[in-house]
Amino acid sequence: MDGPDRAQERLQARAPEMELIREAQAGSRVAFDALVKQYEQQVLRLALHLTGSEHDAEDIYQEAFLKAFRYIGNFRFECSFYTWIYRIVTNLCLDQLRRRKTRREDQAVVLDHSGDEIDVLSSVSDNRSFSNPAKELDRKVLGERIQAALSKLTPRERMVFELKHYQGLRLRTIGEMLNTTEETAKNTLFRATKKLRTQLAGLR
């Protein structure tokens, strides 16, 4: 199928959503609720994975949709609503990651899903000579090591890696969401993978 046909198809698929957005812009709460239902799973999934905290994810969800409600009048259909709402969420997540980065400058801790803080590095063995992680560490600890490595990234690197690796978005879309170019997003991803490899070198 050629490009114009696909674009036409996308437009047709988005037509009901555009109608909902217009109604929400006109002040319809029902239309806005429908939009929330459409995106809430994705918003929570991203926030939960990025912050590692249900509480933070809930806060980000709340703040993101309140902002969307307040500023939906500014949405001008220049990008998809998906990109727009993700831009709000990623900005809130970045703020959260920055706050956390400052707070954890001297300690490597993450929150588990129940909200309790755990010190990841203290639970990881210093012996990096092992060759088979499946035998030496259980999956949980490995996950925590990875979380710890991710937390060493800058908030922006963390965000790009999250959106690319875990959410599977295109670099161009990531650039749009983060108000930057595809090239910058690519370079950020490259730096993130390099850092992670360094952090997780002993785990191979």
Partner: peptide, 11 residues
């Protein structure tokens, strides 16, 4: 492969 150990969990 390692990163996949920290999967995205559905809320």
């Amino acid at each position: 492969t390692l990163a996949a150990v920290h999967p995205v969990i559905e809320p």
